[in-house]
């Protein structure tokens, strides 16, 4: 049992995109704020702080997670993945990111991080999604710029490419 006092800052440690990180937080600090302002991982955005818009979605221990509905203290010791962790390297985009760029699946890019996280997580487990499945998955995100259909197309494109790559490498 650990009890963290309200008026103090406490060390929070976890693995962020494969690297150990540590910073201090009051118990009330949201994971979204902790990532952005304590760790400088500003790719995760905050759009509503009540769990509806999906912009802040990250992956915690393999679970899609609204970081605005999660306390930093709750993820102590966990493994986190954020948008900063999905490209193969800083100067190269991954398959999903490239599909987004190719399909003009983003405009302002503010909601995009959360959508990428949902898709990155989902496609890892469901390599051959239908359009309906992608629409169901992404109904937990709000995008005001694109009208969504290019995002869905990008997701299906990426899935197809990932599958064919896998088949090639398996062969």
């Amino acid at each position: 049992m650990t009890r963290l006092k309200a008026d103090r800052r406490h060390a929070v440690r976890f693995s962020l995109n494969g690297k150990p990180v540590e910073a201090e937080a009051e118990p009330r600090m949201l994971l979204s704020d902790f990532l952005r302002h304590q760790l400088g991982a500003t790719g995760t955005h905050v759009g509503c702080e009540h769990g509806v818009c999906g912009a802040c979605t990250v992956v915690v221990d393999g679970m899609l997670t609204r970081s605005c509905l999660t306390l930093a203290a709750q993820v102590d010791g966990c493994e986190l993945k954020t948008v900063e962790g999905i490209a193969p390297s800083a100067d190269r985009l991954g398959v999903l990111q490239q599909a987004f760029r190719r399909n003009h699946a983003l405009q302002c890019g503010f909601c995009t991080a959360g959508i990428l996280m949902s898709l990155d997580h989902y496609l890892g487990k469901n390599p051959n999604p239908t359009e309906a499945e992608i629409r169901d998955l992404l109904s937990g995100h709000i995008c005001r710029c694109t009208g969504y259909t290019p995002i869905i197309q990008a997701a299906l494109d990426a899935a197809a490419e990932l599958t064919s790559k896998k088949e090639t490498s398996d062969a």
């Binding site: 049992m1 650990t2 009890r3 963290l4 006092k5 309200a6 008026d7 009051e26 118990p27 009330r28 949201l30 704020d33 702080e49 009540h50 306390l71 203290a73 102590d76």
Partner: peptide, 14 residues
């Protein structure tokens, strides 16, 4: 839109 202050107890058991 930030939560009010509270203590946080990470329970190890019921």
């Amino acid at each position: 839109m930030k939560p009010p202050a509270f203590d946080y107890l990470r329970a190890g058991s019921i």
